[in-house]
Computed example of a mutant assay.
Amino acid sequence: MEFRTLRVFVEVVRQGGFSQAAKVIFSTQSTVSKAVKQLEDELGVPLLDRIGHRSVMTAAGEVVYRRGIKLLAERDDLLAELDEVRGLKRGVLRLGLPPVGSSTLFAPVFARFRQRYPGVEIRLLEHGSSQLEAILRAGDIDFAGLLAPMSEEFDWQVVRSEPLVALLPIDHPFASRPRLSIEELREMPFIIFERGFTLNRMVLDRSREAGFEPVIAAQSSQIDFMIELVAAGIGVTFLPRMIAAQRQHPMVRAVELTAPGMVWRMSMAWRRGAYLSGAARAWLDLLGEVHGGDAGQM
């Protein structure tokens, strides 16, 4: 089995079609289709069921996709380790960072890394933690900024722990309180992040544990927009205390939450047992250097 055809098949599934995969791997749709057909012929089973313009994985395709992701990740680890053995002077660091908190926690590390290791190329992806977890699992990035605790598939180093606060309109009766419980917010509409943000799951899980399903007034990936909605009286939103302090608004007040487990613990994660290149190890060292007071490997 050729890794080339396997990688093409994995990309077709990941991108949801032949034309989208062709764009990602800088090839033609015809070449992509031929590569998948070659893999099917080699394995002796159909991997995709082509229904009109859609392609759905067969049972065999699901097995090949699941195993293929792991094989390709192991191959990348092998090549990276061989490059280190050959004394590679230039390298690549693949980072996945979440929108929430990265400007404060990771931008200083990023800048110092570029100054210290100018020959290393940094490839950056920005997504919510849930999406980054899937991308890290597939081996497409070396590190991801994720909220701890997380899957046993990963090792991680804690970067910063912050309690969550509720952001309320200044004229709300609870805005003058020093703290409140999430149960007391059951009658208020929630303004939350879009799907793919682990912070959402924390808020919704705690609400359900408290016995209610919150009404969602809005979902967004823009913190400033969410705060403006709070100021307009649309509902309540939730942020790490550090982020809320940086985005103070005259018509909004941040109130501490007493709910247990409402702690935003940002960590840098990597696949357990994965080979860490020299660039990757340098990034971890620098992370501990900049955030030494907060970091602690799990």
Score class of each variant (00 low, 15 high):
Met1Leu: 06
Val12Pro: 10
Gln15Asn: 14
Gly17Thr: 15
Lys23Asp: 02
Val24Asn: 01
Ile25Val: 15
Thr28His: 02
Val32Gln: 07
Ser33Asp: 04
Gln38Ile: 02
Glu40Tyr: 04
Glu40Ile: 04
Leu43Met: 08
Leu47Trp: 09
His53Ile: 07
Val56Gly: 00
Val56Pro: 01
Val64Asn: 10
Tyr65Lys: 11
Asp76Ala: 15
Asp76Lys: 15
Leu78Asn: 09
Leu79Gln: 13
Glu81Ile: 05
Asp83Gly: 12
Lys89Asn: 11
Leu93Phe: 11
Gly96Cys: 12
Pro98Ala: 15
Pro98Cys: 15
Pro99Met: 12
Gly101Tyr: 08
Ser103Glu: 15
Thr104Gln: 14
Thr104Tyr: 14
Thr104Leu: 14
Ala111Ser: 12
Arg114Asp: 05
Arg114Gln: 12
Arg116Phe: 00
Glu121Gly: 06
Glu126Cys: 11
Glu126Gly: 04
His127Asn: 07
Ser129Arg: 08
Ser129Thr: 10
Leu147Ser: 14
Ala148Gly: 05
Ser151Gln: 05
Phe154Val: 05
Phe154His: 06
Asp155Trp: 08
Gln157Asn: 11
Glu162Arg: 06
Asp171Lys: 09
His172Asp: 13
Glu183Leu: 13
Glu184His: 03
Ile191Val: 11
Glu194Trp: 01
Ala210Pro: 00
Ile216Glu: 02
Ala217Gly: 01
Leu229Tyr: 01
Ala232Pro: 00
Gly235Asn: 03
Gly235Arg: 05
Gly235Lys: 07
Thr237Ile: 07
Arg241Pro: 00
Arg247Tyr: 06
His249Trp: 08
His249Lys: 06
Pro250Lys: 11
Val252Ile: 07
Ala254Ser: 15
Arg265Met: 09
Met268Val: 06
Ala269Trp: 07
Gly273Gln: 10
Tyr275Trp: 09
Tyr275Ser: 07
Ala280Tyr: 04
Ala280Ile: 00
Leu286Thr: 04
Leu287Cys: 02
Gly288Trp: 02
His291Trp: 13
Gly292Leu: 02
Ala295Asp: 06
